[in-house]
């Protein structure tokens, strides 16, 4: 009797859920491809593999999910593949900064204006590092040095027009200084240049930066965030903003569907990504990697991506890369 009642209650709950969302959500059929524009091992790749694993293992998404690395050509192999599948129901595109910047640099139509925005779900704050032996104690010391000797302060960063380059451009503009940006083929190569003591500055995500600081191979000059972190050890690192250099810049990742994706399908995916990011596994991962989990779905995501695109275009124009 008791049992029956419970079953009935569950059934009723299930029914209300279905009716509440029936109009706007529809599940895709068959296996799903998450298209990733970076090679295996790149941050977007790791993020998508992690979330796909959570979706499948915790039963959030029943359809098998495959990660495909359509790497190369500044993510254009990946986004052109997805742009070429209008209305497709089984492919999602991973959104990382090259999806925004490659079209701006190459002078091709914006990708983000064509795809169906689904969600922005993870962000990484950045910190500015200097060498452990440096005399600088804060960003203003660096600014003073750069003002005294324009171009003499060097930054080792990833690819030209990438996140590190954008961050450098923002710092230059906010502080009114000129830095020498040295691009590298990968973030790892840039870190090697920095650790070898060849340059003064380097941008790192919080997790990477804290590792370096703990190992005594780097010293923080400030966070590029709007507010300080709360964790012990990180909490005493000031933001650039509070030191008088008004820069807030975070890396972010998201997903989108092909052009003309059925809105019901996009809503279904947005819901699934929300569920996946609410799991303990995902939250633990965010905490371990010191990432942020601000969630933007559908129209919010569209606005968010559009604003980021404007930032990218402005900075790329400022550093002379926009076409």
């Amino acid at each position: 009797m008791n049992m029956k009642l419970n079953l009935g209650a569950v059934l009723a709950l299930g029914l209300t859920c279905t009716t509440a969302f029936a109009q706007e959500m529809r599940a895709p059929e068959g296996p799903i491809e998450f298209t990733v524009g970076s090679a295996a091992g790149g941050t977007p790749d790791v993020i998508m593999r992690t979330i796909a694993q959570i979706m499948n293992e915790e039963g959030i998404v029943e359809n098998p999910i495959v990660i495909q690395n359509r790497s190369g050509a500044g993510h254009s192999n990946a986004y052109n593949h997805v742009l070429g599948l209008p209305g497709d129901e089984n492919t999602l595109l991973t959104l990382a900064s090259p999806v925004f910047t490659t079209p701006i640099v190459q002078g091709t139509p914006s990708v983000i204006d064509q795809i169906t925005p689904i969600a922005g779900f993870v962000q990484s704050e950045l910190m500015l590092l200097t060498t452990p032996t440096s005399e600088w104690t804060g960003i203003q010391d660096m600014v003073a040095a750069a003002q005294a000797n324009p171009g003499a302060v060097r930054v080792a960063g990833g690819a030209s027009g990438g996140n590190d380059h954008i961050a450098t451009g923002l710092v230059e503009k906010a502080a009114g200084i000129t830095l020498t940006y040295i691009p590298h083929e990968s973030g790892g190569a840039a870190r090697a240049t920095f650790l070898g003591g060849n340059v003064e500055l380097h941008f790192a995500t919080l997790a990477e930066g804290m590792e370096q600081i703990a190992a005594g191979t780097a010293k923080p000059l400030g966070l590029l965030s709007a507010a300080r972190r709360t964790e012990a050890g990180v909490a005493d690192i000031p933001t650039l903003q509070e030191q008088g250099v008004d820069v807030v810049y975070t890396q972010f990742w998201g997903v989108g569907g092909p052009p003309q994706m059925d809105p019901a399908l996009a809503a279904w995916w947005a819901d699934k990504f929300r569920q996946a990011t609410e799991t303990q596994t995902w939250k633990d991962g965010l905490a371990a990697n010191m990432q942020l989990g601000n969630f933007y779905a559908l129209d919010e995501a569209k606005t968010y991506f559009a604003a980021e695109q404007d930032t990218f275009r402005a900075v790329l124009t400022q550093i002379g890369l926009a076409k």
């Binding site: 090679a39 295996a40 091992g41 790149g42 790749d45 790791v46 593999r49 990968s186 790892g188 190569a189 870190r191 090697a192 650790l195 990477e208 590792e211």
Partner: peptide
């Protein structure tokens, strides 16, 4: 150092 020296060690790092 956490710096991959080759394409395959980058995948190992991701793993």
């Amino acid at each position: 150092l956490g710096i991959p020296g080759s394409a395959s060690s980058a995948v190992l790092l991701a793993a």
